[in-house]
């Protein structure tokens, strides 16, 4: 995967203490390890096996993903924003790489 690009959508605004909807997507093939190429060889598995989100160092969600999650994994969840701060997202690839993204969110 050469150009893995995470995309994150947060609401425009929220008050302190609100629960907000967080939408995340990353472009990735999520190769299941079950498919074969035209030569009949099995294409090795390569998926995002873990996704996490923290807000101001506190964990929001920690996901263990399996090959049956669609390509370009999309995950949507809710987070409590008690104050302004940073969302840190991480996607863990089977090949050992970790793709991260940070989004600053301001309440008020």
């Amino acid at each position: 995967m050469t150009d893995v690009r995470p995309r994150i959508r947060l609401p425009r605004s929220a008050s302190a203490g609100d629960s907000i909807l967080v939408k995340t997507l990353i472009n990735h093939d999520m190769e299941t390890g079950l498919r074969r190429n035209s030569a009949g060889e099995t294409i090795p598995r390569q998926i995002i096996n873990r996704f996490t989100c923290d807000f101001n160092g506190r964990n929001v969600i920690d996901c263990a993903l399996e090959p049956s999650i669609s390509a370009n994994p999309y995950i949507e969840f809710e987070a409590i924003v008690d104050q302004s701060g940073d969302f840190v997202f991480s996607w863990h690839d089977d090949n050992g790489e970790v793709y991260t993204a940070t989004e600053t969110f301001t309440v008020g």
């Binding site: 964990n59 929001v60 996901c63 263990a64 399996e66 409590i80």
Partner: peptide, 9 residues
């Protein structure tokens, strides 16, 4: 998949 909710969920 398994989705675990943290304290800021």
């Amino acid at each position: 998949g398994r989705f675990a909710f943290g304290e800021a969920s």
